[in-house]
Design a protein around this nucleic acid. Sequence first.
RNA 1: GCGGACGUGGCGAAACCGGUAGACGCAGCGGACUUAAAAUCCGCUUCUCGCAAGGGAGUGCGGGUUCGAGUCCCGCCGUCCGCACCA
Length: 865
Amino acid sequence: MSSRYNHAESEPKWQRAWRESGAFKAQAPDSERPKAYVLEMFPYPSGRIHVGHSRNYTMGDVVSRFKRARGFNVLHPMGWDAFGLPAENAAIDRGVHPGAWTYDNIKQMKSQIEKLGCDYDWDRELATCDPAYYKHQQAMFLRFWKAGLAYRKKQKVNWDPVDNTVLANEQVVDGRGWRSGAIVETRELDQWMFKVTAYAEDLLAALKSLDRWPEKVRLMQTNWIGKSRGATIRWEIVGEAPEGSPQSIEVFTTRPDTLFGASFLALAADHPLTKTIAARRPEVAAFAASCAALGTSEADIEKAEKKGVDLGLRVRHPFDPEWELPVWAANFVLSSYGTGAIFGSPAGDQRDLDFANAYGLAFTPVVLPPGADPTSHSITTEAYTEDGTLYHSRFLDGLSTQAGIARAIEELEKLGSGEATTTWRLRDWGVSRQRYWGCPIPVIHCPSCGIVGVPEDQLPVRLPEDVAFDKPGNPLARHPHWKHVSCPECAADAVRETDTLDTFVDSSWYFARFTDPKNQDAPFDKAVASAWLPVDQYVGGVEHAVLHLLYSRFFTRAMRDVGLLDLADGEPFAALFTQGMVVHETYRSAAGKWLAPEEVDLKDGQAIELETGLPAQTGPLEKMSKSKKNVVDLDRFVKDFGADVVRWFVLSDSPPERDVEWSAAGAEGAWRFVQRVWSLTEAHGPAAGRVGQSPAPGADKGEALALRQAAHRALKAVTEDIEGFRFNRAVARSYELVNAIARAKGDDPGIVAARGEALTILTQIISPFLPHLAEECWEKLGFDRFVATTPWPTPDPDLVREDSVTLPIQVNGKRRGEITVAKGLSEEEVKALALAHGPVVIALKEQTVRKVIVVPDRIVNIVAG
RNA sequence: GCGGACGUGGCGAAACCGGUAGACGCAGCGGACUUAAAAUCCGCUUCUCGCAAGGGAGUGCGGGUUCGAGUCCCGCCGUCCGCACCA
């Protein structure tokens, strides 16, 4: 009599057994076996997790368990990205201490994640808010500073005057602080910067070698780094330059070949020269102010309008001292890119053209499109930005775009009025935050010694516990005594830095700390970390495609260059997989409020609000989020259906990189599968265990052979699917194998043996996905060790091989029949069989066979007419 | 605007290198078991004409290359993502 698989009993039992056996502890990396470092992006402990979060962890776990079974020494750790704003917001809103709130959440989330049954080495757990962690981060900061990789600089920031804090760009909504609603000001503040640009060239070039990263992510990073080659050109000001300003204006361009098409210079509204002139001329000041008001907020709304003001200056053309051009200030020129000034070449740039047309500035086309007629080619409202042949360009006439660029630069360098330059979009990383819940920056400001690093033996600089969040601003700055210290150099009264580090710093090296998480004297032992790194498989969301991944790439290079790490190419993650999200329908009541899935009843596609009985509106599929209430609680689901069902479902149906839609029906399907595997194992497992030892009579023919073949073919396919991150296909293969086992009826020794073998293989191939069920089945099959630590089986080539093939036969490309022949049969024989095949003969009636194409073991196509 | 990805049954999706389109799952329909239901098991399920045998159409749209195209090429349409006045 079969019983139900009892996940509620089984799952905790195996989790305990795994933990107690120490089966998932990573061994020292110098052991015999090859290493596999598998890592999922560690979470911010925001509280409870829902089924959507489980997909990321499950994918990592499948890889990790598979690698272990394949004989690798696996490192699969988990920890907490524990500093950050939400903890401070909780403190402001509810009066809880950020630390207490964070550790409380960690406790809750850990218990939830543990229930998923992942094979984490929990001994390596870390939290970035732990002084034992940030101590090393502070020491590292000081090393970077000494090496010139960290420095201080005045920088423009978004300042919220009500909350007295700096805001990240994402926290500025429509020009206002997201929390206070106050209009955000631009302020110049002293900020600590990390010199990411020192590695710009390498960060870009090395992307090419990251062939196990998604192309999309590499492209996004390439764009973000934004290398562009061109020239810097100095334009001499006609007459006296305004007082205090240099005599020439520097401009960056990627198209020096179009210099003879220049019609004006345009400066950013906050270019130093614009500011100088604005001090004297009100209309320029007014223009600059109107640009500043637009600022970050509505730039995109106003993007179409090109506006400017004539600054009343003139400059000389570098190639012709007689040629004078006007200088304007323009709203489309960015002070933060290049030199904050451009030369306008309207025929070859749409913005320049719009601007020239708006203000009636004359221009000449200088690039002739291929095949265009030089006498009639003209530009009116559409610029020609492609390559072509230069004309109207004196000594550049007749040159291609590329040759023209080279020739123009050569000339500029000869004249001393410019040179080849490379500019980057990438800028240094500002890491100062006026926040409490972050890693304190370990420096002291002394009135006589300047900025002094906190001596290493005094680290960590701990956050004070007794802080109040009753007032806006940084609690560290107004703490009664925390910041008052004596200078480590001269013992004079001094103050601590009260800024803390951007939390992206915390997550830029945690993967290295995991290799040696208990080390008290160093962030990690150099040899140990160097042996484990790079991470062999990193799994996470695309939302981190640029910042987190780029910062980590910077950090591993910096750590290498200050002598902490041996990592030749500096790359932290050898392979990256970006997984899709779990999405769910959203529901809204007639009254317009969001409804959770359990608050509605779905009948014939119409959602009904249970409480009121009124129809509810079904919204689009969206990422599970608390605010839209379209979440399925993990604990509740695990309690009702089990962790294995969650794991199976989130990997079924959709390819891992694409989103998967959560549905109750789909989850039930996964549940049915689990039950089906169990009932088959329960029914046939014990018998299989008894006969499994010696070759059973009859297992090499008929139905028994077919079942054995199905099992070995499934094994081969699933192995390849896991290696290729095609988990949805592995799931489908597993269904097929279960169907095959269920179909094989009978009790003769051959079938019993084949069934036992198939169940054994099935248990092993599902074990990375359904680890608890697999252990239970493994035990039922009579094995006395964990399936989790049992070596992955190898398919028998004789059973995988197909002996005969079914060939479709086409007549003029249309399928007219099929024949089953021995594999490898000669083309002549196949041809003869095909032409004699009944349906083919009928289809060929009254037609002449002109050609017969035989693709061995694939298809036959007869061309007739 | 620029860059990228994608478009296949009622739905999620398979289809290795150009070679039987729709594996597998969900939903649906029919049947078995049951006093009944649930659960479970078995079968059917791209559309269309046909009682059937069998035929026709079919991978967003329009062309092309090929014996043969979901797959390659050209041009459109649509959806999603990233960047966004980057000189």
